[in-house]
Design a protein around this nucleic acid. Structure first.
Length: 825
RNA sequence: GCCGGAAUGGCGGAAUUGGCAGACGCAGCAGACUCAAAAUCUGCCGUUGGCAACAACGUGCCGGUUCAAGUCCGGCUUCCGGCACCA
């Protein structure tokens, strides 16, 4: 065989696979299916190492499962709506579509150079009318189910991007995409009612056994469920009522004030009746002008202003001062919070600053608190109640329940579950997205575009200048239309949808990508989906993964699919780092996949990236490590070349009993390796250790390079070695397969099965321990029972020497492992 | 503050159910081949002491359980990530 030349063989096989459509798949209800999916990329123009890692992992799973006999769906597509295309249009005058499609073309070319087993016929591009027609159709479905609505609200606005953002897209007060400060704006916007599904989105996290704990916790935190009590307080001077929400009803006898957000409904009424209306107004204005970060940071100074009015604590009839404050979150709970300084550190700080009364209602069990000596609130959730009428003396946890019962019985309280999760703001004042299929009629109001008129096509005669209105409004032809209901002159909705809508259902479209009658066929989607293994970055832990779960649940309730979770198993890959930090142009530490593939080939790039670290951990890029992977593939190539004649001459059913002792040992290692690699790939996603055991096998193979090797065994070694490496390094293995075995593609072979009998050892090494320390090793038959093992070991000179003159307290025998002699003296 | 994850040689990492810590790879050292170098093949490679046999120490820290602990329990430290004035 000639020298290993990846550049020559990789191209050859990629062309052949494509021509022969080796990776094309069809639904087949008679075969078990496996759906392997990598998160589809945004078409930025070039693949980076993160993509390479993502696709390499997915490709191993897809190829492995295919060899295991599954009908495998392994598709790829592009999340191709979005801002960068539009920015390119503004900056360079190219159309967003042209920019996007040329990037897709380039990235596809790079993906194809990786040798990935995609069924390209199923490619999904979210920016095509064939796709966004169904995105719009799904929006209409949500609308009809009462899950899409338009409302005026204070929303997140990114001035740089010229659009609003969902809560999930605001990271530490900054835009997720461009990192600039997010402001608040009052706008009328479309929302999806994800809060209707808050409870089930939280509860079903328990079902997701194949998801990493940390992703589930993140979603749990984000949804933020809390159980508590709503308490209604009278405000006699205004003849009004006020509702507060608390998770600590046990402290209700300690209310001395009520803190209101300026947005609370009662505030305007308070100001109206107040004799210091101007001051209060000014204070409210000041608070409302603060940005979200200023207002919601726990470090910022608590401020407030007394309104002069009081509410009555319904538990004890005590008066509670009504304050307008800057520290109450307006859109959580009721925008009003009961102030119990003794039991809440924020209330404590506020009460101390403004000299408000404090009542102690909870005493810890292990010490006695004296109000005058306290320097901070007692916030531990443990103790007995004091100063709490009939509840005094009760354990805190019992009191929570008892007080809620009491409040409900008396009619001034109601148990309530609250969530941190807010509805999903989906309007975007941008061009390159799916238009919201709604027409505004002066007579009929909001009207959905009739299904037969979908898709609402993106116009091309627009000006791309960013502003507070979508560029779609600049197309007269697009903007003006007739009302589908009454025929009157009407205008279209000019906002487009958040691209996260497009990506919330793309994995379902892959199951039936060319359907022009429906988003997907029910039988097809229920055959292939849910996704068996989803692979992607942790950055989508909340955004994409939460939205997709929401979509799936709505589609299940609408009867479009039979499952209620989209992704059975989730693998969050680590980042690819260079010199300890994420590769980025600004740091100048980017390693280009194209260059690496050009130099060493895709097989080396894939092998290195899978070998260098466990898939879920960050990976430090190492040029020398890549060399190592390349060396290994060369070693495989050479050793198989060395035994080429034997491999070709060998028979598949040869006489194993004729093997020498050394050959038997090699064969044993082979079968141990098959077991190890199978389990690592199938059960643990430990590709790094799977590869390392194949390396060990190759090292053992090299032990025979200067020796005779039974032709049957040479063949068995080669067949299984090439098969085991096939998912990791698809080209070199295909080349070797064609050289050595001729028939078919290695990727359509059956995955190796290990032979228990071959794994049996005549002799195994056991360890002698004295007091738990290793003192000697000996080869024995693996069939020895405890007694026989003990006997053999006790006869060892080392054992005699080290136990001489000492008292043997105990002897522990672990069959096939060790004998531990415990001595005293 | 609450929640989650992690910590093992010079480096990436392995040890799956408590049973030989450091597999495999990188780097390093040595030998073979070569006029020489590269490539390749082979061997060595945690620390300390010792010519060696061997011994002691060693998986972030302190303690515990156990014949035996990287692994289990209790208490910390540091780092990474999420949430956070959410009542």
């Amino acid at each position: 065989m000639e020298k290993y030349s990846p550049q020559a063989i990789e191209k050859k096989w990629q062309d052949k696979w494509e021509k022969e459509q080796v990776y094309k798949t069809e639904a087949d209800p008679n075969r078990p299916k496996y759906y392997a999916l990598e998160m589809f990329p945004y078409p930025s123009g070039n693949l980076h190492m993160g993509h390479v890692r993502n696709y390499a992992i997915g490709d191993v799973m897809a190829r492995y499962k295919t060899m295991e006999g599954y009908n495998v769906l392994h598709p790829m597509g592009f999340d191709s709506f979005g801002m960068p295309a539009e920015n390119a249009a503004i900056k360079h005058g190219v159309s967003p579509a042209d920019w996007t499609f040329s990037n897709i073309e380039n990235m596809e070319k790079q993906q194809k150079k990786m040798g990935l087993s995609y069924d390209w016929d199923r490619e999904v591009l979210t920016c095509t009318p064939e796709y966004y027609k169904w995105t719009q159709w799904l929006f209409e479905l949500f609308y009809q189910k009462g899950l899409a609505y338009k409302k005026k609200a204070s929303v997140n606005w990114c001035d740089t991007c010229g659009t609003v953002l969902a809560n999930e897209q605001v990271i530490d007060g900054k835009c997720w995409r461009c990192d600039s400060d997010v402001q608040k704006k009052d706008l009328s916007q479309w929302f999806l009612k994800i809060t209707d599904y808050a409870d089930v989105l939280l509860k079903d996290l328990d079902k997701l056994e194949g998801w990493p704990e940390r992703v589930k916790t993140m979603q749990d935190n984000w949804i933020g469920r809390s159980e508590g009590l709503e308490i209604t307080l009278d405000v006699p001077e205004l003849d009004e009522k006020l509702v507060v929400y608390t998770t600590r009803p046990d402290t209700a006898y300690g209310i001395t004030f009520v803190a209101l957000a300026p947005e609370n409904e009662l505030v305007d009424k308070l100001i109206e009746k107040s004799d210091k209306a101007e001051e209060l107004k000014a204070f409210c204005q000041k608070v409302r002008n603060q940005s979200d970060i200023e207002r919601t940071s726990s470090e910022s100074e608590k401020e407030g202003m007394f309104t002069g009015f009081y509410a009555v604590n319904p538990f004890n009839g005590e008066k509670a001062q009504l304050w307008i404050t800057n520290y109450v979150v307006a859109d959580y709970g009721t925008g009003a919070v009961m102030g119990v300084p003794s039991g809440d550190s924020r209330d404590w700080m506020f009460a101390k600053k403004y000299d408000l009364p404090i009542i102690l209602t909870l005493q810890p069990k292990d010490k006695e608190l004296v109000l005058e000596e306290m320097t901070e609130a007692y916030v531990e959730k443990d103790g007995r109640l004091v100063n709490s009428a009939q509840f005094t003396g009760m354990d805190m946890h019992e009191a929570v329940k008892a007080i809620m019962d009491y409040a409900e019985e008396k009619g001034f309280g109601k148990r309530k579950v609250n969530f941190r999760l807010r509805d999903w703001l989906i309007s975007r004042q941008r061009y390159w997205g799916a238009p919201i299929p709604v027409i505004n009629c002066p007579h009929c109001g909001e009207v959905l575009v009739p299904e037969e008129d979908l898709p609402v096509m993106l116009p091309t005669d627009v000006s791309f200048e960013a502003g507070s209105v979508s560029p779609l409004a600049s197309s007269e032809k697009f903007l003006h239309c007739k009302c589908p209901k009454c025929g009157a002159d009407a205008t279209r909705e000019t906002d487009t949808m958040d691209t996260f809508i497009c990506s919330s259902w793309y994995f379902l479209r892959y199951t039936d990508p060319h359907n022009d009658k429906a988003p997907f066929d029910k039988d097809k989607v229920n055959y292939w989906a849910p996704v068996d293994q989803y692979i992607g970055g942790i950055e989508h832990a909340i955004l994409h993964l939460l939205y997709s779960r929401f979509f799936t649940k709505v589609l299940k309730d609408a009867g479009l699919v039979d499952f209620d979770e989209p992704f059975k198993n989730l693998l969050t890959q680590g980042m690819v780092l260079k010199d300890g930090s994420k590769m980025s142009k600004s740091k100048g530490n980017v390693v280009s996949p194209e260059e690496i593939i050009g130099k060493y080939g895709a097989d080396t790039a894939r092998l290195f990236i899978l070998f260098a670290a466990p898939v879920d951990r960050d990976l430090e890029w190492s040029d020398q490590g890549v060399e190592g992977a390349y060396r290994f593939l060369n070693r495989v190539w050479r050793i198989l070349g060395h035994f080429e004649e034997s491999i070709k001459a060998g028979k598949d059913d040869y006489d194993v009993s004729a093997l020498t002792k050394d050959e038997k040992e090699l064969r044993r290692i082979l079968h141990v390796t098959i077991k190890k690699v199978t389990e690592d790939v199938r059960d643990r996603f430990m590709f790094n250790t799977a590869i390392s055991s194949v390396m060990e096998l190759v090292n053992a193979f090299y032990g025979f390079q200067d020796k005779e090797l039974n032709a049957g065994l040479a063949r068995e070694m080669a067949v299984n070695l090439v098969k085991m490496l096939a998912p990791f390094a698809p080209h070199i293995t295909e080349e070797l397969w064609s050289h050595l075995f001729v028939e078919g593609s290695v990727h359509q072979q059956k995955w190796p099965v290990y032979d228990e009998a071959a794994m049996k050892q005549d002799e195994i090494e056991i360890v002698l321990q004295i007091n738990g320390k290793v003192r000697d090793k000996i080869m024995v038959s693996p069939d020895l029972d405890r007694e026989a093992m003990e006997k053999v070991v006790m006869e060892l000179p080392r054992a005699k020497e080290l136990t001489e003159g000492k008292q043997i307290v105990k002897v522990i025998c672990v069959p096939k492992k060790l004998v531990n002699i415990v001595v005293k003296g």
